[in-house]
Design a protein around this nucleic acid. Sequence first.
DNA 1: GCTTGACCTGGAGCTAACTCCAGGTGCTAT
DNA 2: ATAGCACCTGGAGTTAGCTCCAGGTCAAGC
Lengths: 134, 134
Amino acid sequence: MKIAEVSELSGLSIDTLRYYERVGLLPPVHRNDSGIRDFDELDVRRVQFIKCMRQAGIPVDVLTEYMRLALIGDETFEARKNILEEQRDLLAAQIAEMQSTLDLLNYKINFYEERLAAVEKNLSPMEEFDVTTQ
Amino acid sequence: MKIAEVSELSGLSIDTLRYYERVGLLPPVHRNDSGIRDFDELDVRRVQFIKCMRQAGIPVDVLTEYMRLALIGDETFEARKNILEEQRDLLAAQIAEMQSTLDLLNYKINFYEERLAAVEKNLSPMEEFDVTTQ
DNA sequence: GCTTGACCTGGAGCTAACTCCAGGTGCTAT
DNA sequence: ATAGCACCTGGAGTTAGCTCCAGGTCAAGC
């Protein structure tokens, strides 16, 4: 599979795919006689995995290290598991934080709605930058 | 309240606070006769609000626009509400995506655990970059 | 056999969001 | 009165993660 197809399929730009290979996040992809990349099924699955992790904000260098270990073999299982656990914990914390910000946003939006309604009825104004509800 | 205290209190660096004022995210803070910033209660609440939104990944320029509107007055209510709604929707989508990545991470960690156990019993290996469980 | 389009490379450029620095001012305690 | 510390400014530097570019190769269609 050529790079354009993988790009199409994954939603990552061609440049990004090449960049990932350059920095070692994607192991060297097999080339044909003209030097053109030919992604196999495993490569594509790796791309999809990377895309997923990147979207969640896991840094490239962490994933690169993970990939480096994965290529070594079974003796790096424990190390890889540790990386994933660490990232999972970070991610969980981030989700919790974002969830509480989401709640705050909803609270504020609701406040705006009420206040817009109140304005029509000429009621008293309320406070703007109230974050006490976090 | 001086900038060091606000920094301490908010967890944002002094440089970041000054940067926020520079780019208009934080409206000009009152200065004493020597030109030194003296944050009042409203400033501090704004800082806390900004910190919360920034942690959730809402861009500085979006927040700057929001702040600009907030300073104009009540006639920008609708516009501000629209900004918040848009950011809320983006945030909700991001959280959902991260949650599914979190699930995948847990699945993989679990897989590692089982495989580590299996290795001790000499069972057959399984596939590495499986994202089909998304 | 020439043009076109997809691919290649190394390296430069870009954006967001800080972060740091040099050089300067002004309380405050010795 | 002077040393030290917190503050100030404008501007430069940094980091992550791409993104773009110039210049080149190659296979296919007209």
